[in-house]
Amino acid sequence: MDIKLESIHHAYHQVEVIRNLSLHIPHGQIVCIVGPSGCGKSTLLRFIGGLEKPTSGEILQFGEPPPGCLNPLTYIFQDFALLPWRTVYDNISLVLEDHPLSDADAHHIIIDTLQRTKLLEFADALPRQLSGGMKQRVAIARALAVKPAIMLMDEPLSALDSQTRELLMDDLVDLWTRQPFTAVYVTHNLAEAVRLGHTIVVLSRRPGEVLQQIHIDKPLNERQFGDAELEQHQQQLWQLMRDEARAADAELLHE
């Protein structure tokens, strides 16, 4: 399933947030969206997932979600959004309970996703017993459990420390390599973008427009920490973004 955004405009109470934005999210690839804070990245993601409507423009879906898909557009949130009163197992069970699945099928799905995210031994733990990285792994497992056609990830690693971030990036690369998924990955961290993105979309400061799209052909599992080619891409992106980020920073101060 592909998604196409066509000339999206959006304003919140006369404040223009997104201007003339068109974007293609191809099947089986990770599209990273980077941009200074406040440029409308989260807003864009809410549009794609159908949680909000843009002022004008269209979001089109091409093709049908794969069979067995329970929730085609599935989010992974920066703050994990786990229910603190449910165990890891039950947090994943939550998103299956509204679907007509037999108990055995649901159990099978939960165990399978816990295995894929290496969480099986934590099945009975409560969120408060887990580290931030573990919590985000649970959220990723929960997203995988509904077999999404497209994952919408809003700064999923931003609440984590840099070591944990590296580990989770490795996990995501692993997951993608074993079974490619489609994802829109919003971040303000360029290192994450060049590590995980097949396409990197750079947005301008508010109102967000596409400044540039770059494609990185190197397979995800060959991208290493400190890779020279990636460094170069990251440099290039930073050149592009520096002035935008500075201007966005100054703008916020004036408000």
Binding site: T74, Y75, F77, D98
Partner: peptide
């Protein structure tokens, strides 16, 4: 609210 939004985003009734 983030928990409620999560529920909605997973299509919970």
């Amino acid at each position: 609210r983030s928990l409620i939004r999560m529920g909605q985003s997973f299509g919970l009734s």
